[in-house]
Design a protein around this nucleic acid. Structure first.
Length: 907
RNA sequence: GGGCGCUUAGCUCAGUUGGUUAGAGCGUCUCGUUUACACCGAGAAGGCCACAGGUUCGAGCCCUGUAGCGCCCACCA
């Protein structure tokens, strides 16, 4: 036996960094270096944090959850890979640097110029990445840094170009003139889901409009109208459907066709909608269906175009003011009403979105793909989830996903942002004479993996590269496989099948994608779409969605509310393990989590409790080497081992089922409420009665394996205790220890549980009596137990009862041994307890207390009798349930009889 | 407008196919330095499980409806 003395309290600050360094240097984060065969792989690709600065508590949460998954898999003998990385997040990062440059240098991106500004962004990103790497390490994340990736590094850029070319060749990427969301501040398009809506007090203008009156919130767009829509059943206008007329808003005549559409609400406004195909998504679609021409009056610069005649060159706001005034002057404005409505704004800079038609690159989500059984991207993506090939947790998000996917419109992938993957597209000036303003078709367009020297068609050398960059989600959509060596590790055969090699073969599809429910459509959906296309398989088997971290009152954390909890601050203050537990326990998938510093402090206390449990056990001495499973000797031994086994089974099953909160609770309850509060206290007494090391062997076994169970949750404190106590040498780390295996539940476990429960009840009851009569804690009193059938149990554990209930003497008899004088009495688990307390006991009060208990027991008895007297219950309920009720009835009758005896003895 | 979720102790939440007298942590109150731990220990109080019906021998759990709260999607020109 070796005795070890741990420090009096756990000090995370002094050990965490060193432990992480050791883990990292061991190379064991890389599955290639793990010992053993490891046939089965387990892969998590880290959702790459945006390289826009620092990590927040939400990142700390996902790092914790993913680390639990990976550490568990690693300990269970799997080739566990957790691949880290960062995202260039084009719009977000560029916007951030624009802000910094404006504030610190008073410059705009134009002052820099495109090349120099991109360099400036790269510098900023480099700093962010360094910070992020440091922070990820601080959280204890056991990710494989040797495989770290960045969505904009060279391998990923190659993959993106490859994907673009392949999709273009398959006709899935096309160039089209369609309506897009345009952010005038970012000077770029946005995807539909990058648009947010804000409530706004607006106005509804009723203007004279040829033969109609049209209501609009944006009068200036009427300059771009080419039609009006009415409800097909609207009697007022039915006869006019299909007719054309001209209006003149002061810029010359506009030809307007009347069309019918069921979506028009006859009750709203005048029941006539002016159609502006170029500046409203809904109108655009109606125009497409009815062949209306497009008339673009607002340009990408946010100013009115030449088609707006005298208003050309004005900003939208100026134009509105002038136009409204002009209409009023001409008596064409009927009335103006107040109206609350939603306006769309950019999700990055909150600038109002200007919908407009533009020539952009799109992904066609509806086009059948020959190599994929003629299914479209949309169909493939829906099928991946519907078929069960991907499981989403919690499952209610499957519906959200499917609905979103089914309603997907053409995905606009080109952005006019500078920072990002430039589209691999060149235009040949010789073939086409350059890219005509709004020309159609693809003449003169070259799509290529590498930079072409000359035009493949005409040999001309006057090539210009398209300046557009790709939607940031295009590259992050490829994240699960671009990080594993795509395209080199996935050769496509002539029939479209994919032959996987290297890391893709070994680690793809990945096991779990753990991410926030808020980016289910943004990201998860895109990954499924891109992966089913590129690899013909799903990107991941499971999606685990976490919620948002909120403050104590359930509010979002924000700078303005000053309620931000910085994960680095609290990790430093309370220890990383405490922060991790506070983010795990009580955290249900798909639900938001309320966080507070008090909660973290509570888990700091718990880490210290575990430390002190270890300290106590190790002080008593542990056997050399890995503690084997010892033979239980006493009831308590049997009980704690059975409880431990059950804990192992339950924690293992939960972790396998992607439940991370409950195993934390299970472990905390076992560690604190059973091991520390009961078994350790009993062990102190029983150890003195045994003349060998059996107790310490049991304790060592329990501790070493309990540390393993805790390790995925609290990697640092468990590794530190392991290192000081159980490690065979510096290379022996709990991180790669084998996950505990325990025998199945034994047949006599029930009896063990029952005996232990009785023992605990007896002790608690005596403690209760002491407390009730205000007996000083230090004072040893005597007690008598009339134990009946329990005589064996009670007499064998007399020492334990005396110790834990602080009794001087405990007299045990089978029956009829009531002490003289004033006694407090109780019946528990079939045992009568008498505690002679002399003058402390008021006989009347005691009698009343017993009578109250008697009344409760009788009430319960009546309920049981009622239940068992119900013929339907006895006939229809399962036998075991009925038998259990009968047992309860018998126990209750016994208790009542004994209580009556005690009451009688009082007088 | 459409969809989803929630409502259990003062607070945060468990409660897995319906079956002990509904649990835990925090907080509150009482007592306590028993040599692992005051970042601790012992004990206590505290709940018509939102409401109303229904199914069932039996409902916190299943079904229907109502109310309140929250979220997502669509979006009215």
């Amino acid at each position: 036996m070796k005795k070890i003395e741990l420090a009096k309290a756990y000090e995370p600050q002094s050990v965490e960094d060193g432990i992480y360094r050791d883990w990292e240097q061991s190379g064991l984060f890389n599955p290639d270096n793990l010992p053993g065969k490891r046939d089965e792989s387990f892969t998590v690709i880290m959702p790459p944090p945006n390289a826009t600065g620092t990590l927040h508590i939400g990142h700390a949460m996902f790092l914790t959850l993913e680390d639990i998954m990976v550490r568990f898999a690693r300990m269970r003998g799997k080739a566990a890979l957790w691949l880290p990385g960062t995202d260039h997040a084009s719009i977000a990062t560029q916007a951030k640097v624009e802000k910094i440059v404006a504030k610190e240098e008073g410059k705009t991106k134009y002052d820099y110029g495109r090349e120099a500004f991109i360099e400036r962004i790269k510098k900023f990103v480099g700093g962010s990445q360094a910070t992020i790497r440091r922070q990820v390490r601080k959280m204890g994340a056991s990710c494989d840094w040797s495989r770290e990736a960045y969505t904009l590094d060279d391998p990923r850029s190659r993959a993106v170009r490859e994907m673009f070319v392949r999709m273009f060749d398959d006709g899935l990427i096309y160039r089209g003139y369609r309506i897009v969301n345009w952010c005038p501040r970012c000077e770029s398009t946005l995807a539909d889901d990058e648009v947010e809506y804000r409530e706004q007090r607006g106005r509804l203008y009723f203007m004279k409009y040829g033969p109609f009156t049209v209501a609009t919130t944006r009068p200036e767009t009427k300059l771009g109208d080419t039609g009006v829509a009415v409800h097909p059943e609207d009697a007022r206008y039915r006869d006019m459907i299909g007719t054309e007329f001209e209006v003149d808003f002061g810029i010359g005549p506009q030809r307007i066709r009347v069309i019918a559409d069921g979506s028009v609400d006859p009750e709203f406004g005048s029941g006539v909608v002016g159609l502006t195909p170029a500046h409203s998504a809904v109108d655009f679609e109606m125009a497409e269906r009815n062949g209306l021409p497009i008339r673009k009056v607002i340009g990408e610069d946010g100013k009115m175009t030449a088609l707006a005649g005298r208003y050309a060159g004005m900003t939208v706001e100026e134009c509105r003011t002038r136009f409204v005034a002009d209409l009023e002057a001409k008596g064409l404005m009927e009335k103006v009403e107040d109206l609350d409505n939603n306006i769309s704004v950019c999700y990055r800079c909150a600038t109002p979105i200007e919908p407009l038609t533009s020539r952009q690159w799109f992904i066609d989500v509806n086009r059948p793909i020959a190599d994929r059984e003629n299914k479209s991207l949309k169909e493939l993506s829906v099928e991946a989830v519907r078929s069960g090939n991907i499981r989403i947790v919690p499952d209610r998000f499957e519906k959200v996903y499917c609905r979103w996917m089914e309603n997907l419109r053409p995905w606009c992938i080109s952005r006019q942002i500078w920072f990002g993957h430039q589209v691999p597209v060149w235009y040949c000036d010789d073939c086409r004479g350059g890219l005509a303003a709004d020309g159609d078709g693809l003449e003169g367009v070259i799509v290529s993996r590498d930079t072409p020297d000359s035009c493949p068609k005409c040999g001309g050398a006057n090539l210009r590269r398209d300046t557009d960059t790709l939607d940031t989600w295009f590259s992050s959509g490829m994240w699960t496989f671009s990080t594993l060596g795509w395209p080199d590790n996935a050769k496509v055969g002539p029939d479209g099948t994919v032959e996987k090699t290297g890391d893709i073969k070994r680690f793809h599809p990945t096991s779990i994608m753990e991410t926030g429910y808020d980016i289910l459509p943004f990201w998860v959906a895109r990954m499924i779409l891109m992966t089913t296309y590129a690899l013909g398989e799903v990107p991941f088997r499971n999606v685990y969605l976490h919620g948002l971290v909120r403050d104590e009152q359930g509010r979002k954390m924000s700078k303005s509310l000053e309620n931000i909890i910085d994960p680095m601050d609290v990790a430093e203050k309370y220890g990383t393990d405490a922060v991790r537990l506070s983010l795990t326990i009580g955290n249900a998938p798909g639900n938001d989590l309320k966080m507070s510093e008090d909660k973290i402090a509570y888990f700091r206390n718990f880490a210290n409790k575990l430390w002190n449990i270890s300290r106590f056990i190790l002080m008593g001495g542990i056997p050399e080497g890995n503690p084997a499973r010892p033979e239980p000797r006493t009831l308590a031994d049997r009980w704690i081992l059975a409880r431990f086994d059950e804990t192992v089974r339950s924690v293992t099953a939960d972790l396998e089922g992607m439940n991370y909160s409950r195993p934390g609770e299970t472990l905390r309850d076992f560690t604190w409420n059973e091991l520390a509060d009961w078994y350790l206290e009993i062990a102190k007494i029983e150890k003195a009665q045994e003349n060998d090391d059996n107790k310490q062997k049991i304790l060592a076994y329990l501790l070493s394996n309990l540390l393993k169970l805790w390790h995925p949750f609290m990697p640092f404190v468990t590794e530190e205790i392991w290192r000081q106590a159980f490690a065979a040498g510096p290379e022996d780390r709990i991180m790669v220890a084998e996950w505990p295996e325990v025998p199945a539940a034994a047949a006599d476990d029930g009896a063990v549980m029952d005996g232990m429960a009785a023992l605990r009840e007896i002790i608690v009851t005596i403690r209760n009596i002491r407390s009730e009569y205000g007996v000083e804690a230090a004072k040893k009193i005597g007690a008598v137990a009339v134990a009946g059938d329990r005589i064996d149990l009670v007499s064998r554990h007399a020492q334990v009862i005396r110790g834990l209930a602080r009794l001087g003497e405990l007299r045990v008899s089978a029956e009829g041994d009531r002490p003289e004088g004033q006694v407090a009495a109780a019946v528990v688990a079939g045992v009568q307890l008498f505690v002679p307390l002399g003058d402390l006991v008021d006989a009347d009060a005691e009698k009343e207390r017993l009578n109250r208990e008697l009344a409760d027991a009788e009430k319960y008895l009546a309920a049981l009798k009622g239940k068992l007297g119900n013929a339907d219950f006895v006939a229809k309920a399962p036998e075991a349930v009925v038998a259990a009720e009968r047992e309860k009835l018998a126990a209750q009758e016994d208790k009542i009889a004994k209580l009556r005896g005690q009451v009688a003895g009082m007088s």
